[in-house]
Design a protein around this nucleic acid. Structure first.
Length: 371
DNA sequence: TCACCTTTGAAGAAT
DNA sequence: ATTCTTCAAAGGTGA
């Protein structure tokens, strides 16, 4: 099978997907066993009264059950290998737009509609995530202001030598594809650019905080305070490529927010985590596929980049707290159950109610699937 | 202003 | 080889 890297032996994305899917054999079991404590299940069982929810889930369960029946994974690796087969063919060229430079709106292409890459432009709306139109991807906005940045590369370090990646965007170092020519001068002077001349969503300010009014998604522009003391311009930080779950979160966050009228990311992420586990393999595979392509392109664009580059040296930037007993966690659903009980759910905090609803959703799905 | 929360996955470091 | 740690996104929260 042709590899994206030209069969050089670096089977990108394979390992991680093996890891990602190695648990999938116990996917359902994992949901049943680890997603909830026994008390959670008991509580949920005793109060599964949301008819509409159950009804809604029944359909999905039927669908999932059907899919499960049809699934034959004699070899998980074989299944995974199917994905790159697509990208070697037309799918990768036509459907996956990778990073923004691959989905330039036609007016911004040097040759307009007759540009070699114009075939992809038409299917992706400006401002949408290149990997899936559902994702807001506002960082790519040719009209957005940019300030020059220097994405320096460490000399002599080569994580990966670009060789071949789907004819559409082969990017030998220093070579600019025809569809990139429009970047080559004026915009390169204005925008956060990779040395290849490609704007990349992974370029971030050293602070790590996004400032949407100043750089679209990730391209670093100095903030006002920094501008005052820009004597010592900081190098932009190249962010890690998003993994499958992160891509899923980006796509689904708005939906969850709308459903739960929540904005607190911690609670939303809990819900998204549950929903992630509730996805079918095929549904998850879509995101694993996108994530792998993100990594591949990231690697093409920043061959010398290492995740270690973003590690805070010397000290631990963020120390994860020890796993707290959720019963002592003020924001925990258990806490609310303990305090108010299931009969007084109206006293539960919003996040707990929403998380519980989501748990109920997943639980009912899996319970029904077992029946 | 900034760390924390919270999730999963990837990557690198440490053991 | 396995385990541990950090960082990706997001936005509210509290110090």
């Amino acid at each position: 099978m042709p590899q994206l890297n030209g069969g050089g032996g670096d089977d990108l994305g394979a390992n991680d997907e093996m890891i990602a899917f190695k648990h999938e054999g116990d996917h359902e079991e994992k949901i049943r066993e680890s997603a909830y404590t026994e008390s959670d299940l008991a509580d949920l069982k005793s109060s599964l009264v949301n008819e509409s929810e159950i009804s809604q889930n029944s359909n999905s369960v039927i669908r999932r059950g059907h899919q499960e029946d049809q699934r034959i994974y004699t070899d998980k690796r074989e299944h995974l290998d199917d994905v790159p087969k697509h990208q070697d063919g037309g799918m990768y060229k036509a459907s996956y737009s990778g990073y923004p430079f691959l989905m330039l709106p036609e007016p911004y292409l040097p040759n307009g509609p007759v540009s070699p890459s114009s075939n992809k432009v038409s299917v992706v709306q400006q401002g949408m995530h290149p990997l899936t139109p559902l994702l807001p991807y506002d960082h790519f906005n040719p009209s957005a202001p940019h300030i020059p940045t220097d994405v320096s590369q460490k000399p002599g370090v080569h994580r990966h030598q670009p060789q071949e990646i789907s004819g559409f965007y082969q990017l030998p170092q220093g070579q600019i594809t025809p569809s990139m020519n429009w970047f080559s001068h004026s915009l390169m002077l204005q925008s956060g650019m990779h040395p290849t001349g490609i704007p990349h969503p992974a370029i971030m300010p050293p602070s790590g905080k996004q400032e949407h009014d100043q750089f679209d998604r990730n391209i670093y522009v100095k903030s006002h305070p920094e501008a005052k003391r820009e004597k010592e311009p900081k190098k932009p930080v190249i962010k890690k490529p998003l993994n499958a779950f992160m891509l899923y979160m980006k796509e689904m966050r708005a939906k969850v927010i709308a459903e739960c009228t929540l904005k607190e990311s911690a609670a939303i992420n809990q819900i998204l985590g549950r929903r992630w586990h509730a996805l079918t393999r095929e549904e998850q595979a879509k995101y694993y596929d996108l994530a792998r392509k993100e990594r591949q392109l990231h690697m093409q664009l920043y061959p010398s980049w290492s995740a270690r580059d973003n590690y805070v040296s010397g000290k631990k930037k963020r120390r994860k707290r020890d796993k707290q007993d959720s019963s002592t966690d003020p924001g925990s659903p258990k806490k609310c159950r303990a305090r108010f009980g299931l009969n007084q759910q109206t006293d539960w905090c919003g996040p707990c109610r929403c998380v519980r609803l989501s748990l109920t959703h997943v639980f009912s799905s899996n319970t029904t699937a077992l029946l």
